[in-house]
Amino acid sequence: AWPVSGAERSSQEIWESFSQCFTPAVKEVVEFAKGIPGFQELSQHDQVMLLKSGTFQVLMVRFCTLFNADERTVTFLNGQTYPLPTLRALGMGSLLDAMFDFSEKLGSLGLEPDEMALFMAVVLVSADRSGISDMRAVEQLQEGLSRALRSLITCRRPDDTSLFSKLLLRLPDLRTLNNLHSDKLLAFRID
């Protein structure tokens, strides 16, 4: 319902708007993580390490709903909608193409909001383990959350035996997205 913007705004302004969207989104992932049963039982060090390595991937899952694959537009969290060519001009083409592709694949699985939330929890605790001090505790948390996701999906779709494995196949995609794009630059105006 938002007017497609971009024409009258400079690429610098769009870039700043894109960058500023990340700050609240990251804070929301941190709050989300604290709500995951068992997450706060991890050491503070391990909580920080998992968040640092997994937040970008959780954001990729969360941002899926902002990508309209049919109309090739992206709606930022501030409500502004941009056509893909406008954003491509900012040099974010490769990241956006990868996110469109990922959001189409994940979107096709038709997850319910609670299933998506549980999947994001699994994504976070499945993130890169470098720097983790208590590996056993993180693995136990991951196993518990994966079991919960599997049983939630199985009980809702008893005859769709492939959905859970299709979901797990998205984890390497997310890791690739993270490795390819988390070094993208953001710009914050300092007045």
């Binding site: 990340f22 990251v26 909580q47 970008f56 988390s182 630059l185 710009a187 300092i190």
Partner: peptide, 25 residues
């Protein structure tokens, strides 16, 4: 004149997480 702080997505994410946990200690 307007100046800009440029940082990678990963560094920006790390910065916000470190700030959050420091504030809540």
């Amino acid at each position: 004149p307007k100046t800009h702080r440029i940082m990678t997505l990963a560094d920006h994410i790390s910065h916000i997480i470190t700030q959050d946990f420091a504030r809540n200690q």
